[in-house]
Amino acid sequence: MRIYMQTQPVSNESPRYYEIVLQQDLLGGWMLYREWGQQGGRASSKREVYLERDDALTAFAQARDAQVKRGFKVVFSQGLEAPHVR
């Protein structure tokens, strides 16, 4: 799953962005990757590993919601499907 968000550009500055990616690793765990910064400038990133899919999905939703509250708008999303049925 992937979400790319941006803020509205302010005066002559480039917009800020925030990207969140959730993917399963080769050992069955889940990696939540976040990257943020100013478009065309330096970026920061953070990676977190989760053993359970539900925990990873919760962290993904919390990260998304926190950025929406800060004024980011979703520009692109991919792979947001219903949870697996076991």
Results as ranks from 00 to 15, higher is better:
Met1Tyr: 07
Arg2Cys: 00
Ile3Ser: 01
Tyr4Val: 04
Met5Ala: 03
Met5Asp: 04
Met5Gln: 02
Gln6Ser: 08
Gln6Ile: 00
Thr7Lys: 13
Thr7Pro: 15
Thr7Leu: 03
Thr7Gln: 05
Val10Phe: 12
Asn12Phe: 05
Asn12Ala: 04
Glu13Met: 06
Glu13His: 10
Tyr17Gln: 01
Tyr17His: 10
Tyr18Gln: 01
Tyr18Gly: 00
Tyr18Trp: 09
Glu19Asn: 08
Glu19Gly: 01
Glu19Pro: 00
Ile20Gln: 01
Ile20Gly: 00
Val21Asn: 09
Val21Ile: 11
Leu22Trp: 02
Leu22Cys: 03
Leu22Met: 09
Gln23Tyr: 13
Gln24His: 06
Gln24Val: 00
Gln24Arg: 12
Asp25Ser: 09
Leu27Lys: 03
Leu27Glu: 10
Gly28Pro: 04
Gly29Asn: 14
Gly29Phe: 04
Trp30Tyr: 15
Trp30His: 15
Leu32Ser: 05
Leu32Phe: 13
Leu32Cys: 12
Leu32Ile: 04
Tyr33Phe: 13
Arg34His: 08
Arg34Lys: 15
Glu35Lys: 10
Trp36Ile: 01
Trp36Asn: 05
Trp36Phe: 12
Trp36Lys: 09
Gln38Arg: 12
Gly40Ile: 07
Gly40Phe: 02
Gly40Ser: 05
Gly40Cys: 09
Arg42Pro: 11
Ala43Glu: 11
Ser44Arg: 12
Ser45Thr: 05
Lys46Gln: 15
Lys46Ala: 06
Lys46His: 14
Arg47Asn: 15
Arg47His: 14
Glu48Ile: 01
Val49Leu: 13
Val49Met: 07
Val49Cys: 04
Val49Asn: 01
Tyr50Gly: 06
Tyr50Glu: 07
Tyr50Cys: 04
Tyr50Thr: 03
Leu51His: 13
Glu52Pro: 00
Asp54Glu: 15
Asp55Ala: 14
Asp55Thr: 07
Ala56Ser: 12
Ala56Gln: 05
Thr58Tyr: 03
Thr58Gly: 06
Ala59Tyr: 06
Ala59Pro: 05
Ala61Trp: 04
Ala61Asp: 15
Gln62Tyr: 03
Gln62Ser: 14
Ala63Trp: 01
Ala66Ser: 14
Ala66Asp: 14
Ala66Ile: 02
Val68Asp: 04
Val68Thr: 11
Lys69Gly: 06
Lys69Pro: 01
Lys69Phe: 05
Phe72Asn: 00
Phe72Ile: 00
Val74Thr: 11
Val75Ser: 04
Phe76Ser: 12
Phe76Thr: 11
Phe76Val: 11
Gln78Met: 07
Gly79Asp: 14
Leu80Cys: 07
Leu80Asn: 11
Ala82Phe: 13
Pro83Arg: 11
Pro83Cys: 10
His84Phe: 13
Val85Phe: 12
Arg86His: 09
Arg86Ala: 05
